[in-house]
Amino acid sequence: MLGVVTKIIPFSSVDGPGNRTAIFLQGCNINCKYCHNPETRNSCINCGLCVQVCPQKALSLENGKVSFDASACISCDTCIKTCPHGSTPKTRLMTPEEVMEIVKKQMPFIRGITVSGGECMLQPDFITELFKLAKKENLGTLIDSNGTIDFREYPDLLEVSDGVMLDIKAFFPEDHRRVTDADNNKVLENAQFLGENNKLSEVRAVIVPDLYDVVKNIKAMGEFLVPLYKINPFRIKIIAFRPMGVREEYANLQVPTKQLLEELRGILADMGFEDIVII
């Protein structure tokens, strides 16, 4: 079995509790305007445009496929900026065992792994196999997902997952569509299902005042989540929009003020949520 891996961050402090190895899988099924790594959305179609612009000659076309030499790469991102398809030539096809070898190198300094993306749930079988290997090493296993793929269909995966860190990018369907070009009915169903089954470890909301009514959405989201929180508590992360890595046409979206973020925290705290983190 092979997964399309965008990159592996050996030590990550921002992908779940403690120190974790974060594995990013290539490909996404929605289109968030504020996406920080838009090159992770699509598969490479081997058009070769990036090969011509790479200043380090780290890319080449071999038998019609783009080949990447990591040792020559200086991470200037010229290839990513050039790609017209929202992709990157730097992905690797890897088996779960190969990924696990890299993870093992980080032990005993990590408490677990997190798979992220792109949308990692587009490769559920790969994650299942990887998590089985991780569990053998007593490592924690978290999924970072946009919630558009139905988790009810993957009981084997949930069996080996500690939990899901779920994005609720907006609560109201029309807002979610404006932010992501996709509906959110599946997202909310997933939240419900995961919450009831003690698999919801974190809910994240990215705050972009220019794209939707932030206060109204957070209020509604909080009210929706309160019953779930009472079953099994989880963390809520309020993530401020930042322009780093965002596509040019969206990079001018307004960054939320500290004041607004604190107001949102207050709204959620008043509803009884205790573990609220602003980033």
């Binding site: 030590f11 403690g18 120190n19 032990m107 005993p108 990590i110 980033i279």
Partner: peptide, 22 residues
């Protein structure tokens, strides 16, 4: 350590524990 770790002190804790085991 980068500032974002302020919200995740467990990151540093994991590194200390791993280091002392090694």
């Amino acid at each position: 350590i980068d500032l974002t770790v302020h919200r995740n002190p467990e990151y540093v804790m994991d590194i200390i524990k791993g280091a002392f085991a090694k």
